[in-house]
Design a protein around this nucleic acid. Structure first.
Length: 909
RNA sequence: GGGCGGUUAGCUCAGCUGGUAGAGCACUGUGUUCACAUCGCAGGGGUCACUGGUUCGAGUCCAGUACCGCCCACCA
């Protein structure tokens, strides 16, 4: 016997356990060996992370697809795994060390620190897996992978070596985005531009050979800058070649204030006469544009900042490699050495001011680059780093999408993808971190690099090069986390080995992910997949939106507006959360999540539960030999047709990734069709004398409920599986619902049944509506007299007499002449009269009828106007015109009936 | 500067290929032992941001305007 309400907490664990023990998640089940495969790789959550709303959405959608396809008979692989998340994880562990006042990572040493991170990974790394299970995710957990597993690491090394040999990975010294807090390079994508209020300092640079006079502008040139502290590294001043103001100065020099260095005034198109003073200081070692200008003019690149962003004015033994010291510093500023950049800015401006070298200071709003993890202001910094030639790899990846080998859903994300891919920059892949895949490159004593999958391989290469064995030192850097993620669709399937899994499940069918990682991840998987497997990694990419809070703000820990999906699961059940996310996952829009919505869908689960209780109480048990096509009772034929319509709509919607539509259809079908109408309408039959009809109805009710459980299962797996299991007939169920076949279409839709039950529903609704409007107490039974009924209506009334009387709360139901003083309802050709003498207010009823007449009248006028419009009649499609004509005929008939009704009513006055 | 998206009921949002506006929540009234008050029944509430255009017909297509949001690039 089912409990009175559904309590998710009581059964979710058991159900999940039952699925796991049955091996229901496993790919490659023997009975499906002949089936078409269906594969999805999970976007691997960070190993130290915990489930947030974005994961909940992302994985709900994947699970819906996966369960749907599994029920459709496909051999499903949902490949799970986690990501080592280099910077993020290293930061977590470093913070932990700090909190516990343990030695920091440098004090610990690399090996001990990495061991510590692994420890942390083992401890907390699988919480996310447990949380995905609570959400109901049906991943093949036996295939769980981690980006730093031996197998995946082997793939990383092989990819690195092969790309290096192909010239697609190279080492280069150029400006990178440097995070002075994390002390590592980061890629362009990890830089966030944040609008900041700052200042624009206009500095006077004295012209060589003149005597500087602040009142004589021919003795200096003004440059504007937002970063005065970098002036110590200036190596030129640039003006536009066509700028008449400065033409005479090109080729001359200025004396760099404070430093005393002589630097040239050069002409370069980069300089914009409109901006600032039209002359711009060039600091090639600290600005991306200036770097380019510097290269064009062969300017020296002088670095004036240390790795942690202090002024670096003399050789410093501790600085990070690749940095040049600055020999030309005047004694007057030697004391600034080692001062942090922002303090240095203030001091330098003060010193310039004291020499009258600052013309003005303006407030200025500009965007400042910040590290997305550390939130520190990023410094462009000249260092040696490893790069991937992304532009070359992008070409086939662009082509594959252009040719439709991979399709984005919604399609408009392809624009974003193309735009980025067509302008792609070299990808900086080295990170000065410890946690990650160490770069497989070794250096000889002279700095010559040898790239190989392991040290033995590097030694072989070194011996070939030097003619003898020499000591080798491995590159200390690790790879960007996204480098290993880029291989995920094939590294998880066993590549570089040619495994059967790789052959069977690659390319995967669909990737489900958020738009925020199209560049980070999707684009790079495309590049790597096409290069190494020569095939796209996935056929479809379904891009979903971000989950925001109720006010539409991005959820973040710092804002404190994070809704924990596990809290919602605890309160309302995983099914309710899943259904909410699916129902709100309309394409191309962010999801603003509210708890009331989740509560509403929890209620939906309860509603379904109670429908099953009703079935149980009324002995509506699934019958093995039930043939829906043989149903005779109109009501049953109707619900079977409705069920099939729902099936078609849900199937099509999921196939098209319209999750919200699928959820809406199944919700409406179960609640408003099956529960509100069908179950109410069959009550008299179940209690009636016609045992044959009752038996058929029991079987149909059970059958349709089972079909509904199947349709709902991908969205609400727990409650549906529980009911499936509990609703087993005496002979029991052969299998789990999650492995049951998706319903088939049998052509059960029946227009005749639809018309009849549609009529029945309208009749009952009309009577109820009038009762309510006339304030007839719910408990009062009233008579109903039908006049003007056609033969068909008469037959229908006879067939559904019992049902109508029960649902409309009627005392009697008969054909006859409408009595005077009755409320009259026009239903098609017939008039329904409710003699409510003594109850109704004739005056009010007359008004009601007049209102109705007006309404119909205005409709008729509208239709008349339309039909009188010759252009409409001649140009609109025939069926539309016909429809309007029919509508008009009906409206006129109703108007006539209403007028008669009004006449009768007035006669009673 | 380039690109994308949004503006529909009090709130949160649906509305695919143009043919008389929908859901959930909230609100109002009501409550008939017989699945469900986490419920039933009935109901109120929208000039679909604005302007123009295409069309017999526009929430839906096109152009523009306003406001909001996001992404990319850049900022002396």
């Amino acid at each position: 016997m089912l409990d009175k309400t559904y309590q998710p907490q009581k059964i979710e664990g058991d159900i999940y356990c039952a699925w796991e023990t049955a091996g229901a998640f496993a790919a490659g089940r023997p009975e499906r060996s002949g089936a078409k495969p269906f594969a999805i790789v999970i976007p691997p959550p960070n190993v130290t992370g915990s489930l947030h709303m974005g994961h909940a959405l992302n994985n709900t959608l994947q699970d819906i697809l996966v369960r749907f396809e599994r029920m459709r008979g496909r051999d499903v692989l949902w490949q799970p795994g986690t990501d080592h998340a280099g910077i993020a994880t290293q930061m977590v562990v470093e913070r932990q060390l700090m909190e516990r006042q343990e030695p920091n990572r440098r004090a610990m040493g690399r090996e001990a620190f990495i061991k510590r991170v692994w420890q942390w990974k083992e401890e907390s790394g699988n919480t996310i897996v447990g949380q995905l299970k609570r959400l109901g995710c049906s991943c093949d957990w036996s295939r769980l992978r981690f980006t730093m597993d031996e197998g995946l690491s082997r793939a990383v090394r092989k990819v690195f070596v092969e790309l290096y040999r192909a010239g697609l990975i190279y080492k280069d010294k150029r400006l990178v985005n440097w995070d002075p807090e994390l002390l590592t390079a980061i890629s362009d994508l990890e830089v966030e531009q944040i609008e900041t209020k700052g200042h624009l300092w206009h500095l006077r640079y004295p012209i060589e050979g003149t005597k500087f006079d602040p009142n004589d502008c021919s003795t200096f040139i003004v440059v504007a800058t937002t970063r005065p502290e970098t002036m110590l590294g200036d190596t030129a001043v640039a003006v536009h070649p066509d700028d008449e103001r400065y033409k005479h100065l090109v080729g001359k020099n200025v004396i760099l204030p404070l430093v005393g260095r002589r630097i040239p005034i050069v002409a370069d198109e980069y300089s914009d006469p409109e901006k600032g003073s039209g002359a711009v200081k060039i600091t090639p070692a600290h600005d991306f544009n200036d770097f380019e200008v510097g290269k064009r003019h062969g300017l020296p690149m002088i670095n004036v900042l240390s790795a942690d962003a202090r002024l670096l004015l003399h050789p410093n033994p501790d600085f990070i490699r690749g940095v040049e010291p600055n020999p030309e510093i005047e004694q007057t500023i030697q004391d600034l050495n080692g001062v942090f950049r922002f303090a240095a800015r203030k001091l330098i401006v003060e010193r310039l001011q004291s020499k009258d070298l600052v013309e003005k200071i303006e407030p200025h709003v500009h965007t400042v680059p910040h590290g997305d993890r550390s939130n520190a202001v990023i410094e462009p910094r000249l260092t040696d780093q490893w790069y991937v030639d992304a532009a070359t790899l992008a070409k086939p990846a662009i082509d594959a999408v252009k040719r439709g080998r991979t399709t984005f859903v919604p399609k408009n994300w392809e624009t974003t993808y193309f735009h980025w891919m067509e302008n792609i920059q070299p990808w900086c892949i080295s990170r000065q971190l410890w946690w990650g895949h160490q770069i497989p490159a070794w250096y000889g004593p002279d700095g010559k690099v040898f790239v190989a999958e392991d040290e033995a391989g590097a030694k072989v290469l070194a011996r070939q090069h030097y003619g003898e064995d020499v000591p080798l030192k491995r590159d200390e850097d690790v790879l960007d986390t996204w480098f290993s993620s880029a291989l995920w669709p094939f590294s998880t399937l066993g590549w570089p080995d040619r495994t059967p899994e790789l052959a069977r499940y690659y390319p995967t069918d669909v990737l489900v992910t958020g738009f925020d990682i199209i560049f980070f991840w999707v684009a790079r998987m495309m590049m790597m997949g096409l290069h190494f497997i020569e095939e796209v990694p996935f056929r479809d990419v379904y891009i979903h939106a971000l989950v925001r809070d109720e006010k539409g703000q991005k959820m973040s820990k710092s804002k404190g507006n994070v809704i924990d999906p596990l809290d919602l699961i605890d309160s309302y059940g995983a099914d309710a959360l899943r259904f909410t996310l699916a129902a709100m996952a309309a394409q191309g829009r962010d999801i603003k999540l509210s708890a009331s919505r989740v509560e509403g869908y929890r209620n939906f689960a309860t509603k379904l539960w109670n429908a099953a209780r009703f079935a149980e109480i009324n002995d509506c048990v699934p019958r093995a030999n039930f043939d829906p096509a043989a149903a005779k009772v109109t009501l049953n034929r109707w619900i079977l047709g409705e069920s099939e319509r729902a099936l078609a709509a849900v199937t099509e919607a999921i196939e098209a990734f319209r999750f919200n539509e699928a959820a809406g259809v199944i919700y409406h079908f179960i609640w408003h069709v099956y529960c509100d109408w069908y179950l109410e309408l069959i009550k008299p039959i179940l209690a009636g004398a016609d045992t044959e009809a009752a038996a058929e109805t029991r079987a149909t009710a059970a059958f349709v409920l089972d079909e509904a459980l199947k349709l709902l299962h991908p969205f609400m797996p727990f409650v549906t599986e529980e009911l499936w299991r509990k609703r087993a007939s005496a002979e029991g169920r052969a299998s789990l619902l999650m492995l049951a076949p998706w319903p088939e279409r049998r052509g059960l839709e029946n227009a005749e049944a639809d018309a009849e039950i549609g009529w029945l529903i309208r009749l009952i609704s009309e009577v109820r509506s009038v009762r309510s409007e006339m304030n007839v107490p719910a408990g009062t039974k009233i008579p109903l007299i039908v006049s003007g009924a056609s033969e068909e209506t008469g037959a229908r009334i006879a067939r559904h007499d019992e049902t109508i009387r029960r649902l409309a709360r009627l005392e009697t139901l008969e054909l006859g002449k409408p009595p005077s003083g009755a409320v009259q309802i026009v239903l098609d050709e017939a008039v329904l009269a409710l003699p409510l003498a003594g109850i109704i207010d004739i005056e009010a009823e007359s008004k009601r009828l007049k209102r109705e007449i007006d309404k119909v009248g205005s409709e008729i006028r509208q239709l008349d106007a339309k039909l009188a419009n010759e252009k409409f009649v001649s140009r609109a499609p025939e069926h539309v015109v016909e429809e309007q004509r029919e509508r008009k005929t009906e409206a006129e008939a109703i108007a006539a009936k209403l007028k008669q009704a009004l006449k009768r009513l007035e006669a009673a006055l």
